[in-house]
Write a protein that binds this DNA or RNA. Structure first.
Lengths: 213, 213
DNA sequence: TAGATTGTTAATCGATTAACAATC
DNA sequence: TAGATTGTTAATCGATTAACAATC
């Protein structure tokens, strides 16, 4: 599964580059070009493609249009992807209105919170009481939730989501949620990413002396 | 570098678990315990520790207190880590006020934006004109920036940051910024993470048939 | 002591890459 | 044709793990 994840990430990167190339008027592309743009080796590009049955022509490379269409099919981006946001604090609210989603055909169907003052079922993207979540998930057939609640309740809310039928969670809460029985979890821990960044900088400075004096 | 990155991530996870164990009154811990909690093998825990010179006692495991202190030293979390936020839109503003940072001793020193209506140098965390950025970075010796500007200007702003002396960038803009000459970049592409999540779900459903009909 | 756990070595595993025959 | 690029195989590389001697 972890391997698959990395391949999926690469496929998405190829697709993004291809879309930019298409807008520049490119018709065909070589594995070398894609490799440079994405930062991998040409052999890996060809291997990834071959694994998913994407073929090119020797000496003529790959058809940009064709490749994009096939990648969209493989990645399942043809349909609009619907998602809910659970926890409408600062991060949650920012995500509900995030412009980047529309471009990728991602639609936030609703937000949920416990705080009555935040609830507003008539907003463009309605904010509902968390108690209505299981009902909405079922009636709207929602599969994926963005979790943006405080640490203290994160584990509990995650369980409620899974119980309601959610099968994918993008977790912004600072706890390590594990993927398990049919549920895919992606953790985004912002503070942790920053910490790691500082740490990598220090290691770069010190020439990676492993922390020994 | 990519290898180092994964080790750093694991070290941080060990540390987080250890802090929870300490609050539960644990004094010693075995590689088995940490392995279970972090989801890796006991051998890897011991190997990671041994690489960084963290030793335990045979049959008596590792001292929790001691381990936390050493990990903090290695990870450089002893000092407050200062950071700026560039781009004070929805995401940027949410990040400036993010509570998770305080806990990890991360301090947002200032925000920057081009929009005059957003500028407020007297706020608790001042928002300044982007033109003042190079000056502040130098005078405050800032090494790390959070980039949360729109896609269209992201590449250009990133260059300006690097020119000003920034050496680490946490990039929330939906472009693939590459790490290069002394500058460490961590990309967080929220839409892409969601896309990958949907895609992994589909693959799980279809039993990973590689997208062939 | 007998039993358990570390620290480390050698084996394994999986992902990436180099290389090259096929062929356009 | 000569040259270039794909698709694939075998080699490489690095990370993880199994296993076990050391030892508490």
């Amino acid at each position: 599964m972890s391997a698959t994840k990395e391949v999926v990430v690469r496929l998405t990167k190829y697709k993004n580059v291809l879309e930019k190339l298409r807008s520049l008027g490119f018709v065909k592309v070589f594995s070398d070009n894609l490799a440079d743009a994405v930062g991998v080796s040409p052999a890996l590009v060809r291997k990834d493609f071959s694994v998913f049955g994407l073929t090119g022509k020797k000496r003529a490379g790959y058809q940009v249009d064709d490749l994009i269409a096939q990648l969209n099919r493989i990645l399942g981006v043809d349909e609009v992807q619907r998602v809910i946001v659970v926890g409408c604090g600062k991060i949650g609210t920012a995500l509900m209105r995030y412009r980047g989603f529309a471009r990728e055909r991602i639609r936030v169907v609703a937000g949920f919170d416990v705080d009555p003052s935040k609830i507003d079922p008539n907003a463009p993207i309605p904010i509902r009481d968390i108690n209505e979540m299981p009902y909405i998930v079922k009636s709207e057939k929602i599969q994926v939730a963005i979790l943006a609640v405080p640490e203290t309740v994160a584990a509990q809310v995650a369980e409620a989501l899974i119980a309601a039928g959610i099968r994918g969670i993008l977790n912004f809460a600072p706890i390590l949620l594990k993927s398990q029985n049919n549920v895919v979890v992606q953790n985004i821990n912002i503070a942790l990413e920053l910490e790691n960044l500082f740490c990598l900088l220090r290691f770069a400075e010190q020439g990676l002396d492993r922390g020994r004096p």
